[in-house]
Amino acid sequence: MNRRELIKIAAVLLGGSLSSTISSAVIANADNANSTRAPQNPFFDADARKSVAILAELIIPKTDTPGAIEAGVPDFIELIVSEWYTDLERQVFLTGLADIEDYSKKAFGKSFRLCDRKEQTAALTWSEKQSKSHRGSSRPGDNTLSEDAPFFLKMKELTVLGYYTSEIGATQELIYNPMPMKYDGDINFADVGRQWSS
């Protein structure tokens, strides 16, 4: 992290809001828990759905905690791409998926979905390189990622947002306490070991 990055963070953080209060909440109604996190109608074809799942899991893989697929991130991405994205965003996303497919075929002679993990990682690394020249914030959850931001940034933003706001990401990877009952302003990070999800 460098000064430019930190200052950029601060500007994004403070630009629109003076309240540092960030969201938090109580135990979910299990029936509703995933109701908003999958598209009403399928949008991707089977191949695209598979590629998106592989990409999401490459960004946030299973470690000692579940990865993006187990947390339902591919459904969340399909929801956003089909229902929330503008035409331009959707086009950039779908073109980016096709570019990864083309790259895999050229570099490895096969479809991205059929590549091994190492090849898939190389394809996503190539995609990240294509995004380097883009200027602008990509803070997940904000509308600060510009509509024409490259595929890699879009894919990463949605994976991160989908994962850390999922029940698995919020409660297993990070910690979540909907009813803290008190504020303690001086605890040792080692005692919790993970950051609060909200």
């Binding site: 969201s23 909440a25 109580v26 509703n32 828990a33 109701s35 929801l79 956003i80 929330w84 029940e167």
Partner: peptide
């Protein structure tokens, strides 16, 4: 009130 992060529509995207 007390809506969990995973219940908020579009994960809070405007």
């Amino acid at each position: 009130e007390h809506m969990t992060p995973w219940e908020i529509p579009y994960a809070g995207k405007p």
